[in-house]
Protein backbone atom coordinates (compact mmCIF):
# COMPACT_ATOMS: atom_id res chain seq x y z
CA UNK A 1 0.00 0.00 0.00
CA UNK A 2 1.04 3.54 -0.67
CA UNK A 3 1.27 6.43 1.71
CA UNK A 4 1.67 10.11 1.09
CA UNK A 5 3.82 11.76 3.73
CA UNK A 6 3.08 15.48 3.90
CA UNK A 7 5.60 17.94 5.25
CA UNK A 8 4.12 21.25 6.40
CA UNK A 9 5.65 24.54 5.40
CA UNK A 10 6.78 27.28 7.73
CA UNK A 11 8.02 30.86 7.56
CA UNK A 12 11.38 29.73 6.30
CA UNK A 13 10.04 27.56 3.50
CA UNK A 14 7.56 30.29 2.58
CA UNK A 15 10.42 32.77 2.33
CA UNK A 16 12.11 30.39 -0.06
CA UNK A 17 15.02 29.94 2.31
CA UNK A 18 16.65 26.54 1.94
CA UNK A 19 17.30 24.62 5.14
CA UNK A 20 20.84 24.83 6.47
CA UNK A 21 23.50 22.42 5.36
CA UNK A 22 23.25 20.12 8.36
CA UNK A 23 19.55 19.48 7.82
CA UNK A 24 20.14 19.12 4.12
CA UNK A 25 22.71 16.41 4.69
CA UNK A 26 20.53 14.62 7.22
CA UNK A 27 17.54 14.76 4.93
CA UNK A 28 19.60 13.48 2.05
CA UNK A 29 20.80 10.61 4.17
CA UNK A 30 17.24 9.80 5.17
CA UNK A 31 16.10 9.85 1.55
CA UNK A 32 18.92 7.51 0.66
CA UNK A 33 17.78 5.17 3.39
CA UNK A 34 14.26 5.14 1.94
CA UNK A 35 15.59 4.49 -1.55
CA UNK A 36 17.98 1.77 -0.42
CA UNK A 37 15.18 0.02 1.44
CA UNK A 38 13.18 -0.01 -1.78
CA UNK A 39 10.19 1.82 -0.29
CA UNK A 40 10.51 5.28 -1.86
CA UNK A 41 8.40 5.87 -4.95
CA UNK A 42 8.70 9.63 -5.24
CA UNK A 43 9.64 12.67 -3.21
CA UNK A 44 9.54 16.36 -3.91
CA UNK A 45 9.95 19.65 -2.16
CA UNK A 46 7.55 22.40 -3.13
CA UNK A 47 8.21 26.03 -3.95
CA UNK A 48 6.71 28.64 -1.60
CA UNK A 49 3.00 29.30 -2.04
CA UNK A 50 3.94 32.69 -3.53
CA UNK A 51 4.74 30.75 -6.70
CA UNK A 52 1.42 28.90 -6.56
CA UNK A 53 -2.21 29.75 -7.11
CA UNK A 54 -5.68 28.59 -6.21
CA UNK A 55 -8.73 28.18 -8.37
CA UNK A 56 -11.96 28.80 -6.49
CA UNK A 57 -15.20 27.22 -7.75
CA UNK A 58 -18.58 28.70 -6.94
CA UNK A 59 -21.80 28.79 -8.86
CA UNK A 60 -20.16 27.89 -12.15
CA UNK A 61 -17.62 30.68 -11.71
CA UNK A 62 -13.89 30.08 -11.46
CA UNK A 63 -11.85 32.63 -9.59
CA UNK A 64 -8.08 32.61 -9.60
CA UNK A 65 -6.36 33.46 -6.34
CA UNK A 66 -2.64 33.98 -6.60
CA UNK A 67 -0.29 32.92 -3.82
CA UNK A 68 1.04 33.39 -1.25
CA UNK A 69 -1.55 31.63 0.88
CA UNK A 70 -2.00 32.92 4.35
CA UNK A 71 -3.54 30.11 6.37
CA UNK A 72 -0.70 28.23 7.99
CA UNK A 73 -2.47 24.87 7.89
CA UNK A 74 -2.71 25.09 4.11
CA UNK A 75 1.02 25.25 3.65
CA UNK A 76 2.69 22.14 2.34
CA UNK A 77 6.41 22.27 1.72
CA UNK A 78 7.02 18.81 0.38
CA UNK A 79 5.95 15.20 0.23
CA UNK A 80 7.11 11.63 -0.03
CA UNK A 81 5.23 8.82 -1.67
CA UNK A 82 6.23 5.47 -0.20
CA UNK A 83 5.16 1.87 -0.73
CA UNK A 84 5.02 -0.28 2.39
CA UNK A 85 3.12 -3.22 3.87
CA UNK A 86 1.17 -1.45 6.59
CA UNK A 87 0.35 1.88 8.18
CA UNK A 88 2.60 0.84 11.05
CA UNK A 89 5.51 0.49 8.66
CA UNK A 90 4.81 3.94 7.24
CA UNK A 91 4.82 5.31 10.78
CA UNK A 92 8.10 3.56 11.58
CA UNK A 93 9.69 5.10 8.51
CA UNK A 94 8.42 8.58 9.31
CA UNK A 95 9.72 8.23 12.87
CA UNK A 96 13.20 7.92 11.39
CA UNK A 97 12.96 11.26 9.58
CA UNK A 98 15.21 14.06 10.83
CA UNK A 99 12.59 16.57 12.00
CA UNK A 100 12.35 18.52 15.23
CA UNK A 101 10.80 21.56 16.85
CA UNK A 102 7.24 20.31 17.24
CA UNK A 103 6.67 19.81 13.55
CA UNK A 104 3.84 17.39 12.72
CA UNK A 105 4.19 15.12 9.72
CA UNK A 106 0.97 13.83 8.23
CA UNK A 107 0.69 10.24 6.95
CA UNK A 108 -2.14 9.48 4.53
CA UNK A 109 -2.92 6.23 2.76
CA UNK A 110 -3.36 6.49 -0.99
CA UNK A 111 -6.65 5.08 -2.26
CA UNK A 112 -6.41 2.26 -4.76
CA UNK A 113 -9.13 1.25 -7.21
CA UNK A 114 -9.87 -1.83 -5.08
CA UNK A 115 -10.49 0.35 -2.04
CA UNK A 116 -13.37 2.00 -3.86
CA UNK A 117 -14.94 -1.37 -4.69
CA UNK A 118 -18.57 -1.28 -3.61
CA UNK A 119 -18.43 2.40 -2.91
CA UNK A 120 -18.17 3.05 -6.64
CA UNK A 121 -21.48 4.55 -7.82
CA UNK A 122 -23.59 2.19 -9.91
CA UNK A 123 -23.45 4.55 -12.93
CA UNK A 124 -19.67 4.56 -12.87
CA UNK A 125 -19.48 0.79 -12.64
CA UNK A 126 -21.99 0.36 -15.47
CA UNK A 127 -20.14 2.94 -17.55
CA UNK A 128 -16.97 0.94 -17.03
CA UNK A 129 -18.71 -2.23 -18.15
CA UNK A 130 -20.12 -0.46 -21.20
CA UNK A 131 -16.67 0.80 -22.04
CA UNK A 132 -15.21 -2.69 -21.78
CA UNK A 133 -17.97 -4.06 -24.02
CA UNK A 134 -17.45 -1.25 -26.52
CA UNK A 135 -13.74 -1.92 -26.60
CA UNK A 136 -14.35 -5.63 -27.10
CA UNK A 137 -16.69 -4.86 -30.00
CA UNK A 138 -14.10 -2.60 -31.60
CA UNK A 139 -11.59 -5.39 -31.36
CA UNK A 140 -13.96 -7.83 -33.02
CA UNK A 141 -14.46 -5.39 -35.89
CA UNK A 142 -10.75 -5.07 -36.40
CA UNK A 143 -10.29 -8.80 -36.78
Amino acid sequence: MRFLILVPGNEQSEAGVLPDEKIFIEMNRYNEELVNAGVMLAAHGLHPTSKGAKVKFSGGKRTIIDGPFTEAKELIAGFWLIEVKSKEEAIEWVKRAPFDGGVEIEIRQVQEAEDLGDALPEEVRLAEQRMSAQMAAQRQQRK
Partner: peptide, 9 residues
Protein backbone atom coordinates in the same frame (compact mmCIF):
# COMPACT_ATOMS: atom_id res chain seq x y z
CA UNK B 1 1.89 -4.59 14.43
CA UNK B 2 4.48 -1.99 15.32
CA UNK B 3 6.96 -4.76 16.13
CA UNK B 4 6.20 -6.41 12.79
CA UNK B 5 6.76 -3.11 10.99
CA UNK B 6 10.09 -2.56 12.72
CA UNK B 7 11.02 -6.14 11.87
CA UNK B 8 10.29 -5.57 8.23
CA UNK B 9 12.49 -2.51 8.19
Amino acid sequence: RAVEAVWRI
